[in-house]
């Protein structure tokens, strides 16, 4: 692992909402080509972490280094152009825009829309192609999730941030989504995956971090985490 290039290094990151400290000096890194997952219960600070990476929240202290750049001082609208895109929690698709318009907006940071990328996304999600003239707000939850991921891929990111892509989806669809994330990884995109569905996430990821009330309490390879008795009990529903 150490021979590979570090794509992102987060150090002592601290993020607060007023007096509420949501992320308490966490550190983690992501290597090029990896799928890294951040696990944790509701309110652990996962979304806060991803929003800070994308520039939507300001860090109180600490650093987020991406390649040679310090992201904490870069405005949100410039970050996607650097190669980091996000499919946010709750999908946040533009409901009164068509599927195709949503996808095209994903490539807003590009001068031109790469039709090969668009075709690839339609290949990943044939449902989106069938419904490309439909308003995004009329899609089912699973289709909206596909759209959110597809939209994030339109910027041709080096690193994709996914915030609970399986949230609220039927088990079949969860499987499809995770299957697609695997394909995205194989295409060479580095993925930082936030999940509460620990089992599915660890099966897919190379490494993982466990977040509890704003602190990282465990980390390791997916195998290590899957075999850890503490993790099994707290996140995988197994008795010690």
């Amino acid at each position: 692992m150490s021979e590979k290039e570090k794509l992102m290094v987060v150090e002592d990151l601290q993020v607060s909402y007023g007096s509420i400290e949501a992320v308490k000096r966490i550190s983690f890194d992501v290597y090029k080509g990896e799928v890294v997952t951040i696990l944790g219960a509701n309110g652990a600070g996962k979304t806060t972490t991803l929003r800070t990476i994308s520039g939507l929240l300001k860090a109180k202290s600490g650093s987020i280094r991406y390649k040679e750049l310090e992201l904490t001082s870069i405005p949100a609208h410039d970050i996607v152009g650097l190669g980091i895109s996000q499919a946010p929690e709750g999908r946040r698709v533009f409901g009164t825009l068509t599927v195709e318009e949503n996808l095209k907006l994903g490539a807003y940071s590009k001068k031109t829309i790469n039709t090969a990328t668009l075709s690839w996304i339609y290949e990943l999600f044939p449902r989106l192609k069938e419904r490309n003239k439909q308003l995004a707000g009329t899609l089912s939850g699973g289709e909206q999730q596909m759209l959110a991921i597809g939209r994030a891929l339109m910027s041709e990111p080096e690193m994709l941030l996914l915030d609970e892509p399986s949230l609220g989806l039927a088990p079949v669809l969860v499987k499809t989504i995770f299957e697609t994330i695997k394909q995205i990884k194989h295409s060479g995109v580095t993925v930082l995956l936030v999940e509460q569905n620990a089992k599915a996430a660890l099966k897919l990821a190379d490494r993982g971090y466990v977040l509890e009330v704003g602190k990282i309490v465990a980390q390791g390879t997916s195998k290590e985490l899957l075999e850890s008795p503490d993790i099994q009990e707290a996140y995988l529903g197994k008795k010690k």
């Binding site: 994308s54 520039g55 939507l56 949100a76 609208h77 410039d78 970050i79 996607v80 152009g81 895109s85 996000q86 946010p88 946040r92 698709v93 533009f94 907006l105 994903g106 807003y108 940071s109 939209r151 994030a152 910027s155």
Partner: peptide, 8 residues
């Protein structure tokens, strides 16, 4: 915020 994530 979703618009900002698109680079807008």
């Amino acid at each position: 915020d979703a618009a900002r994530l698109m680079g807008i």
